[in-house]
C-alpha cells in the first residue's frame, strides 16, 4: 500500500471520527444530512459484501468493519438517540435520496467490469458514493449557521477521494495491468462535486471567516 492510499484512508477515518466527536460531545447532529449518512451505510454494505469471503489483509478487514460500524451507528444516533435526534434539521434535509439509488443500480447493471453479483454491487457502491454527498451539500447551502466541525467533516470527506485519485495515478504507473476506469471516473465525479465547496472552504480559510455557501 502506498502512502497516498494510506493518507486517503486516514483522512476518511478522521472525517468519521470528527462527525462522531460532534455527535458524542455536543450531542448534536445539526447541519448533518441523514440522507447522506443513510446512503453511506448503503454504500459500505454493498461494497463490503466480500468482507468474510475474500481475505485481503487484517488492515483491510478492520477498516471495513470500522466503516460499516460507524456509518450504521451515525444513522442510529440521528434517527433514535433521544437527545441527538432533536437537533436533526429534518425540514431542511429534503433531498430525495431514493432517486439517486435506482439510477446508480441501473448504471451498475449496464456498466461494470464483470457481470457477477458481487462485482455489480461493488460497482453500484462506487456510483452511489460519488453522488451520496449531494444531500449534505444541499443542506449545507440551506443552513445559515454551520458549525466548524460540520465544515471540517465535509472537507475531510472530500479530501479522502482526492487523495485516492493521486493513489490511482501512482498505482497506474507502478503496477502492471492496473486499469480501472469505472473506479477512476466515479472517484473523479465525486471529487468534482466538491469543487464549489473546496473553493469556498479555501476562501473562508484564507480570509479567516466562517464558511457559507452562496444560495
Amino acid at each position: 500500500m502506498n502512502i497516498l492510499r494510506l493518507a486517503g484512508d486516514m483522512t476518511h477515518l478522521i472525517s468519521v471520527i470528527v462527525l462522531l466527536l460532534k455527535i458524542h460531545s455536543i450531542k448534536s447532529c445539526a447541519g448533518i444530512s441523514l440522507k447522506t449518512q443513510e446512503l453511506y451505510a448503503l454504500v459500505f454494505v454493498s461494497r463490503y459484501l466480500n468482507i468474510f469471503t475474500d481475505f485481503i489483509s487484517l488492515y483491510n478487514t478492520i477498516m471495513k468493519l470500522i466503516f460499516l460500524g460507524t456509518s450504521f451507528s451515525i444513522v442510529w444516533y440521528m434517527r433514535y438517540h433521544k437527545i441527538v435526534r432533536r437537533s436533526y434539521d429534518k425540514d431542511q434535509d429534503t433531498f430525495r435520496h431514493y432517486f439517486l439509488v435506482l439510477p446508480c443500480l441501473i448504471l451498475a447493471l449496464l456498466i461494470n467490469e464483470r457481470f457477477t453479483f458481487k462485482e455489480i454491487m461493488w460497482t453500484f457502491s462506487l456510483y452511489l458514493e460519488a453522488v451520496a454527498i449531494l444531500p449534505q451539500l444541499v443542506l449545507l447551502q440551506r443552513t445559515k449557521n454551520t458549525d466548524n466541525l460540520t465544515v471540517q467533516y465535509i472537507f475531510l470527506l472530500g479530501a479522502y477521494r482526492a487523495l485516492y485519485i493521486l493513489n490511482w495515478i501512482y498505482r497506474y504507473f507502478t503496477e502492471p495491468d492496473y486499469l480501472h476506469w469505472i473506479t477512476w471516473i466515479s472517484g473523479l465525479v465525486q471529487t468534482i462535486l466538491y469543487g464549489d465547496f473546496f473553493y469556498y472552504y479555501f476562501l473562508s480559510w484564507k480570509n479567516n471567516v466562517k464558511l457559507q455557501l452562496p444560495a
Partner: peptide, 10 residues
C-alpha cells in the same frame, strides 16, 4: 478468480 486488483481498496 474473483479478486480484481481494485478490491484491495476501501
Amino acid at each position: 478468480e474473483e479478486n480484481t486488483s481494485h478490491h484491495d481498496e476501501l
